[in-house]
Amino acid sequence: MLELRLVQGSLLKKVLEAIKDLVNDANFDCSATGFSLQAMDSSHVALVALLLRSEGFEHYRCDRNLSMGMNLGNMAKMLKCAGNDDIITLKADDGSDTVTFMFESPTQDKISDFEMKLMDIDSEHLGIPEAEYHAIVRMPSSEFGRICKDLSSIGDTVVISVTKEGVKFSTRGDIGTANIVCRQNNTVDKPEEATIIEMTEPVSLTFALRYMNSFTKATPLSSIVTLSLSSDLPVVVEYKIAEMGYIRFYLAPKIEE
């Protein structure tokens, strides 16, 4: 028996909007720790890891570890039917091939049930090693989203270079080149507007902008994004989900042949 009640149902709506275009089908894993997902895109270039900790739910009942295969497009369709202020409850019985989403309006005057078919998905979890990153950039998520969008109108790839001067995002395309430098700036009034760079050594990596732009669909989940870079590892683009967990996107770099 599984029953997860999320008062801030809009979080789950935003999570689905953030990942549904990157991953078609995925297993959601339910355990005492929380509600989680790990899935790769169909090209095996990017990986998304989601965790919503059990403490973040108003009610969290998960009698035994359960893996539920869902089509994320279909799940997003169902969650779109929930109001932004609705409380969302997920329910599944042991051995059932369906999951039920219950939406309650804040005033309890409208209660909806949506039942969705589960699917068998063959997926293996990848081991993500703990890593010391050469550079960690923390910046406003809206700024990062703007940069990815702007650069993708010029080129297909972005070179992210971190030095003690700042973080530089560069692209080139048929019409020309673009460079955007964000300097460390932690003197702003609001912490969510700060750009903070922690660096142990300079790093420069190239990534496909198509994926970066897809990751920025998570912007509504957090005002801050963290980019963790090392010269020999995929970049981690992390959006923290307030009081609940995170959504992390890993993107393999483009490398010299």
């Binding site: 293996e124 990848l126 190239t206 995929p234 042949e257």
Partner: peptide, 14 residues
């Protein structure tokens, strides 16, 4: 030229 690497080249199967 540069080639797209695969995430599976970095993270092994559990």
């Amino acid at each position: 030229s540069q080639q797209q690497s695969s995430i599976m080249g970095y993270f092994g199967k559990k």
